[in-house]
């Protein structure tokens, strides 16, 4: 009979699975699921790692560009770093004079070739309250850029006498620009009391130099304000340089695992004017 094998198939169908077959099938299914889930979770972990690795350096890069070009265009004598010896309670930040016209996108000069200093630019760390970042609740601050317009156009550059803490509140929200989010304020502790200020912050220094050792020394005092009084205790071999050192640390917490991601970088700028 040519189609006799069909009877065998029908017979086999009505038989069901044996216990051994079910065990083997379950084992194979579990094995396959294990492989698939391993690939999925491993892939997810790698994706998170790669994306945070990209995003954290990108986040730090934006304020670097802003600060680098603005500090390059300013005059060294106009730069003020906060907090300093006189103003210890000021929020961390920096201020300097600018002749940049945002309307034209140009650095403005007078007909005699001198820069038209028209405003003071401030970068200030502003407390942003307590935030739940991942599994951690901590105080954060935002790096804000704001400006103070000067009366007329000043041919001679000068540093700002206005303190950010007193004036910033008067600046409307629309005139403040958020440069960097989730910057950790100084002396911030994590939930487990682990000090993490080395992972967060915004710091600006003037670079001085020990001519004997050739080492760079960080100072908060503008070279134009160096007097015998505020250099007391240092040897006579220390001189000024025209360099400004900026340290930026970006911190964020992974949305899925709550683990911290941080990136710390330091760069130097020499103001041109």
């Amino acid at each position: 009979m040519p189609f006799a094998f069909l009877n065998n198939i029908k017979k086999r169908k009505s038989q069901g699975f044996t216990f051994a077959e079910i065990i083997i099938a379950s084992f194979v299914a579990l094995l396959l699921m294990g492989i698939v889930f391993t690939i999925f979770f491993y892939g997810k972990r790698i994706y998170d790692y790669s994306s945070y690795s990209y995003s954290i350096s990108e986040k730090a890069y934006a304020p670097i560009i802003w600060l680098k070009y603005e500090l390059m265009e300013t005059s060294l004598n106009t730069i003020k770093v906060y907090p300093d010896e006189k103003n210890k309670k000021e929020p961390p930040g920096v201020s300097f004079e600018s002749a940049h016209n945002p309307g034209t996108g140009r650095f403005e000069f007078s007909k005699f070739g001198a820069p038209k200093w028209s405003k003071h630019v401030f970068y200030t760390l502003v407390p942003a309250g307590e935030k739940q970042l991942g599994n951690h609740k901590l105080k954060t601050s935002d790096l804000i850029r704001w400006e103070l317009k000067l009366q007329g156009e000043n041919p001679i550059p000068f540093s700002s006498e206005i303190l950010p803490s007193s004036e910033m509140q008067k600046i409307p929200e629309a005139n403040r620009r958020l440069i960097l989010k989730n910057v950790i304020p100084p002396l911030q502790y994590l939930g487990d009391k682990k000090k993490i200020d080395e992972y967060g912050g915004f710091d600006v220094f003037f670079v001085r130099k020990d001519t004997k050792k050739g080492e760079g020394i960080e100072s908060k005092i503008n070279p134009s304000e160096i007097t015998d009084e505020n250099t007391r205790g240092t040897s006579g071999t220390i001189t000024n340089t025209e360099l400004i050192k900026v340290e930026i640390t970006v911190l964020e917490f992974s949305s899925t695992t709550g683990k911290p991601n941080a990136f710390n970088i330091t760069f130097m700028v020499k103001p041109k004017n």
């Binding site: 998170d48 690795s53 954290i56 992972y199 080492e215 991601n261 990136f263 330091t266």
Partner: peptide, 15 residues
């Protein structure tokens, strides 16, 4: 200046 050739460390914390 010797500080020119001082190695620069970049700290990164990922996950």
């Amino acid at each position: 200046p010797p500080s020119w050739e001082k190695p620069r460390m970049v700290l990164t914390v990922i996950q």
